[in-house]
Design a binder for these strands. Sequence first.
DNA 1: GTTATTGCAAATGATTTGCATTGAT
DNA 2: ATCAATGCAAATCATTTGCAATAAC
Lengths: 149, 149
Amino acid sequence: MEEHKHDHDKETEMIAIMSRSGMRITDQRRTLARIFSDTDAFLSPKDVYDLMRDKYPGVSFDTVYRNLRMLSEMGALEQFYFMEGGLKFKGSCISHHHHHLICLNCEKTLSFEYCPMDQQLKLPGSFKIVSHRFEVYGICDECQQTGEG
Amino acid sequence: MEEHKHDHDKETEMIAIMSRSGMRITDQRRTLARIFSDTDAFLSPKDVYDLMRDKYPGVSFDTVYRNLRMLSEMGALEQFYFMEGGLKFKGSCISHHHHHLICLNCEKTLSFEYCPMDQQLKLPGSFKIVSHRFEVYGICDECQQTGEG
DNA sequence: GTTATTGCAAATGATTTGCATTGAT
DNA sequence: ATCAATGCAAATCATTTGCAATAAC
């Protein structure tokens, strides 16, 4: 059930972000960019570590963590905390604002354009709105078919 | 900046949930019900532990954890993972479906009725929708005034 | 050559578990 | 009296840190 619709633009963009932020482009980071441009799913640090080791048997867990954190901080990755699965990462879609459908089974994501904040929400009190979060969870086509949901 | 709009109904409801689920009503749990009916804010396990200790100097951290987890599982508490602050809990509002404004400063919450899923969202693919999440983050009235945001 | 990045090992922090004791029913 | 809940200590798991060796610029 591996995803391999490699998104070359995303890979290039990720490396560009690193460069722009003054990071050095190491082979590990190149591999990270490759991993995240190869999938739309959320990956745990362990997932990433395992994928990295395919190419770099000697890679260390802390380097994976360090890089995941740095890439998140500079916006190349999105973080998400799954109540059951802990913290996971996916390549971020910097290009435009949108929200996600998230498959509870395979954790792949599908983005969509509708944003609730575009409505005239009348919210109580007078909060100064800073950000919002809207996600829809379910079982994707594929997982429904393979009965894995 | 303590909240003390004690919600007696919520306290009663929480204890009722425990009873219904076959839990024994210990003093610690009574105190938990009290703590969560005294505030609309999210509390970390450490916050709860500290509040508990006011009444029970001898209470242990693991008991707090155990009870927070059990109460979440039986629906008396809602969990939320703050990217910066980790896992926190608040008394859940079982009565009706709604979403929250969450103050990024004091973590108090304000509920509102608008739900994006009531719109005719046209979502891509054919996900089987299971659940959703919508939260608005900002700075509450109070924190704006005290300049803490 | 200079400075960031890596791998290692060790430290930290959060959460969980086993077990004898205590307390609610 | 019975069985679940507690407190303690130790175990586990995730994440972070210090530092010398290494690699990118």
